[in-house]
Each structure stands twice: as structure tokens, then as C-alpha cells.
Simulated scan of single mutants.
Amino acid sequence: MATVLLVRHGRTTANATGLLAGRTAGVDLDDVGRGQAALTGDRLAAVPLVAVVSSPLERCRQTAQHLLDRQAATPSALVEPDLTECDYGQWQGRMLSELATEELWPRVQSQPSAVVFPGGESLAAMQARSVAAIRRHDAAVEAEHGPAAVWAAVSHGDLIKSILADALGMHLDLFQRITVGPSSVSIVSYGPSRPSVHAVNTDAGDLSWLSQGGRSGDAPVGGGAGHPAPPTSGA
């Protein structure tokens, strides 16, 4: 089965100031974010990606370009509107410190499945469109490139958290338990019976094992032997 790497964009000028950017145009990676995205590109250089699919927003496309620049071959580069940021409606463009005083804030934290942002989107609708997009692209990648294929989806924190919650079989009301940092990599394989989550919110470590073939759809009883260790220097 194919494997998707869920990559959050690097830190932005809005992230650094505590602003909820949402779908605001022109929000770019800051210096820290560019460094984070470059590091993620370096981590994935050892993984031959067949495709990089990005949210249309600038910060994701900038992060995706760092991944593309470090690939030896040329993966397909696609933009997917259904991976764009949640529509936060009237919350967009406001400071998180101010939003934390809103009556809706506690529900966002404890019962997100019931949240509809004023003038915007529900978190349930956000999850439905993002999960459907990931599964659609994953099926297309496997059909074209086979079960050993690896591809990357570059998106936003809440979207990736909701995709991981679905893959983990968690109710959306529990998705705030998941942390997805800037430029982090989470790894999911969708099998015939269930998804397998290989990693969540990683920002360091060798990923070359992903180039060594498809992941099995069955869970190894007892936990299995794990993936091969990276080669040591001088080996």
C-alpha cells in the first residue's frame, strides 16, 4: 500500500505573532519557517517521492517547494483545494489571545465536532473534505505507482490533526490531543482493512527506511521487528 507523508507548513509570520491567519492571502514563511522547511526537505531527500500535493495557500506551496528542490527525480507537483486551511470565518485575522475569551473557545477545545465557526466552516466538514482528499490522492498514487510508492501532502495543523484522528480511529472530539508542529512529518499507510499510523509529529530522524518497499496491510503480532536502522558512518 502507498504511504503518505503529512507535512505541515513551516512557521509563518502569523504563527510567530499568535495571529489566526486562516485563508488570508500573502502569509509567508518567516526565516525560522524557511529553515524548518529546508530541514524537512533534507530529511525527505532520501525518500523518492512520486508526488507532492499542496494546499493552495502560499505557506504550504513554499514548504512544498523545499521538498521538491531536494528530490533527485521530479515528483508530480499538485495543488489540492480540499487541503486548504479551515475557513475560520469571523475568527480569521484575530489574535489567539483574544479568541480564547470567546464563548465558543471551550467547545473548540473539548467538543470540536459540534463547532461551526461564525461565518465559516465546521470542523466536521473540514475533516470530511481533507480525509476524502488524502484517500483520493493515495488511491491514485497507488494505482499509478504501486504499493511501494511514497508521496507527500503539505497542509495545515488542524487539517493534519483531523486526518490523523481519522487514521487512528479517534472521534473528532479527541483530535485536540494530537500535536502537529510546523514542518513536522507524520506517516500514514492506508491498507485494505484499516490505516496504519507509522509516526506522528516528527521533526528529526532518518526516514530512508521509507524507500525500502511497501508497508504490509497486516499488523505484526507482537509488534514486529521494525524498520531497518540507518547505516552508520563508515559502514
Rank of each mutant, 00 (worst) to 15 (best):
M1Q: 08
A2M: 12
A2N: 13
L5H: 01
L6F: 02
V7N: 01
V7R: 03
R8K: 07
R8T: 05
R8C: 04
H9Y: 05
G10I: 05
G10D: 08
T12W: 01
T13D: 12
T17K: 09
T17Q: 13
G18Y: 01
L19S: 04
L19R: 15
L20H: 05
A21Y: 03
A25P: 04
G26S: 06
G26K: 09
D30L: 15
D30W: 10
D31N: 13
V32W: 06
G33S: 09
Q36S: 14
Q36D: 13
A37F: 11
A37N: 09
A38K: 09
A38V: 09
L39M: 10
L39S: 14
T40L: 04
G41R: 08
D42Q: 15
R43C: 10
P48T: 07
V50W: 06
A51Y: 08
V53T: 15
S55Y: 11
R59F: 15
R59A: 13
C60Q: 14
T63P: 15
A64F: 14
A64T: 14
L68H: 11
R70W: 03
R70M: 05
R70A: 08
Q71Y: 05
P75R: 08
S76V: 14
E80M: 06
E85Y: 00
E85T: 02
Y88L: 02
Y88M: 02
T101R: 06
T101V: 01
W105F: 15
V108K: 00
Q109N: 01
S110L: 13
S110G: 03
P112Y: 01
V116A: 12
G120A: 09
G120P: 04
S122A: 02
L123T: 03
M126W: 01
Q127P: 06
Q127I: 05
Q127K: 13
A128F: 03
R129P: 04
V131P: 00
A133K: 00
R135W: 02
R136M: 03
H137E: 01
H137S: 00
D138H: 03
A139E: 05
A139D: 03
A139S: 01
A140N: 00
V141F: 00
V141T: 01
E142Q: 15
P147W: 00
A148Q: 14
A152F: 02
A153M: 03
S155M: 03
S155Y: 04
H156Y: 02
L159R: 10
A165G: 13
D166P: 04
A167C: 08
L168K: 06
H171C: 07
L174H: 10
F175W: 09
R177P: 07
I178F: 12
I178W: 13
I178S: 11
S183R: 05
S184D: 07
S184N: 08
V185P: 07
V185K: 03
I187Y: 05
S189G: 10
Y190C: 04
P192V: 08
S193G: 12
R194E: 14
R194D: 13
S196I: 11
V197C: 04
H198I: 08
D206P: 08
S208W: 07
S211C: 10
S211W: 08
Q212V: 04
Q212S: 12
G213T: 13
G213E: 10
R215S: 14
S216P: 15
G217T: 11
P220C: 11
G222P: 05
G226K: 05
G226N: 10
G226C: 06
P228I: 07
P228R: 10
A229T: 12
P230E: 03
P231W: 04
T232E: 12
T232R: 11
S233F: 13
